[in-house]
Design a protein around this nucleic acid. Structure first.
Lengths: 326, 326
DNA sequence: TTGAAAGCGCTAACAC
DNA sequence: GTGTTAGCGCTTTCAA
């Protein structure tokens, strides 16, 4: 089961020294192409698998890829984790995952802890300040998900386009005044979505009422739903689906028809969104692809190119949106 | 940041050899108590952190704890993962997580892959046959979650008591004929819940109609809901919340009032259950505690004691259940 | 372009 | 009860 071939065996089979074998397998340009191929064939034939512990011992660098995220119970991050994990495994590596419970201090501790094991990190929505993130990026390769820090590589869904699509959809249905139920004030995604809202309003003739900042879930949804009703909007766009779920729940409680009296749009399109009654119109963010892309940026031989990669999003229109009442 | 103290430094500080230092830190009974304490104090003072790669290289055993689960996108397993991960971190270790996409072959591949990295595994609802699981347990310490295999340690929620509580609740409301919408036929949990159903019927005067086996989610829920209606039951107990969600969605589609015409009870109590409209009555299974307990069994110096640990569950009564219509 | 050899930090024989 | 020492499998100077 576990393979027994050592580098020395490969070297012997290829009639070279272990040093040359090591270089050949690492793809060093200094070895002759012929030698390299010979070594590689020998390795393949013997089913050689490098001993990562030995490599780590000498290089001091962990081979795993770590994923640090705020909350596995949030289906969006679970999706990111699936993507990361699948891509990492395809590479023959293992993914270490750490949940920070949305706490910046836990986050710092966690990162320090995985340091010895993983020299490559995917940081999803990190709570720590820019400087701290940059400090981490000094000693490890880092890719951010849903967060932008000057000088670092990052991946995100197209927040601006997502809210634009949502607004266009609502406008097409006839809505002219919609409320935005925001996420936590410290959230980079929320800020990005708010910027998108401002930009979109220049092209879509629609009034956006800021309902405030809410914690996702039922407590936040309760407040947001009541405010939406009071604000006399005909539709609400929620920062994310969890918040939209809370809103939907509260509206049902108060006997407010959705979409009859109020249309509701979510963001993220978590799997349960389509199972709700009514199924929730939501901006589909390819969570697993965010994870996969982040890993791919980490796989190269060098530090990933700084800059923000934006993945396309798409509005999934379901039954929580309709024309506004008369 | 990263600590520089080596075992040799600790040994020097404690005026012993590295061998003694190693033994002392490992808690070997052969070292004198006084020496052991001296070494431990020195280690603490220097902030010594063992180099796991070095240890692994010599022992051949990975230090991480791996969690293999069928689907991170299922909130129940996300909960297990949170529990595992938190407990593992508290131990100063790292958790490797691998998602098998509910596929037995992927599962085997994944386990082989994490083998070199982790000598302790938490296997959640493994799909592989008993023999294969036992084979894995030969070469690594294994604790199962939601699965029982003769001779191995396992942790699960109290399935029998969960369905009993659900039935008692429904009976108290006046229901006398309820449908059970089962999970996949290969699921150990489903079998356990069905056994519970049989046992409970001896004490609760209620007729249980087997609606069949369904895949969780909207497709399964659709079929299950229609069958429930046709079976003329006044309540449905679903194998898990995801299936209950699908049922709820389908009932809303067909304009069937819940709980007015049909009461619905889920199992697992995933976080969204309480956000639904109506909030779902469900059997709360302490997912994170299952994970935590599994890790604790793995932490001891020996192979975990075989046998099934059953954690208590509790029915969360919400608004999806009520008296049957006159 | 290749090889010899020195460790990386730790554990586990084996001696004392 | 404690110390000495030989590796674990690999990468990486340094020489050739």
């Amino acid at each position: 089961m576990t393979n027994e071939a050592r580098l020395a065996d490969v070297a012997a089979a290829a009639q070279v020294s272990v040093a040359t074998a090591s270089r050949a397998l690492a793809g060093s340009t200094v070895v002759a192409a012929a030698t390299r191929d010979r070594v590689r064939r020998a390795a393949a034939r013997l089913g050689y698998e490098p001993n990562l512990a030995a490599r780590q011992l000498v290089t001091g660098q962990g081979q795993s890829i770590a994923l640090v995220l705020p909350d596995l119970a949030n289906p969006f991050y679970a999706g990111v984790a699936k993507g990361v994990q699948r891509r990492v495994r395809a590479e023959g590596l293992t993914a270490v995952v750490a949940d920070t419970d949305e706490d910046a201090e836990v986050e710092a501790a966690v990162i320090a802890q995985v340091g010895p094991v993983a020299a490559r990190l995917v940081l999803a929505s990190p709570r720590m300040p820019d400087d701290a993130v940059r400090a981490v990026a000094q000693r490890a390769r880092v890719v951010l998900v849903n967060r932008e820090v000057e000088g670092l590589a990052a991946v995100t869904g197209d927040n601006a386009d997502g809210v634009r699509q949502a607004l266009v959809h609502l406008h097409a249905l006839g809505h002219r005044r919609v409320g935005y139920a925001g996420g936590p004030a410290t959230s980079w995604s929320d800020a990005a979505r708010r910027r998108g809202l401002v930009a979109a309003r220049e092209r879509v003739e629609i009034e956006v009422v800021d309902l405030g900042a809410f914690r996702p879930g039922s407590a936040g949804g309760l407040a947001a739903a009541d405010l939406a009703l009071a604000a006399e909007v005909t539709a609400v766009l929620a920062f994310n689906d969890q918040l939209a779920l809370g809103i939907l729940g509260r509206l049902a409680d108060r006997g407010v028809a959705v979409p009859g009296r109020l249309s509701v749009v979510g963001f993220d399109d978590i799997p349960v969104a389509r199972l709700l009654a009514p199924p929730l119109t939501s901006v589909t963010v390819p969570a697993d692809e965010l994870g996969r892309t982040a890993v791919e940026l980490l796989l190269g031989p060098d530090r990933p190119e700084p800059g923000l990669r934006t993945l396309p999003v798409e509005l999934a229109v379901r039954r929580s949106t309709a024309e506004p009442a008369g």
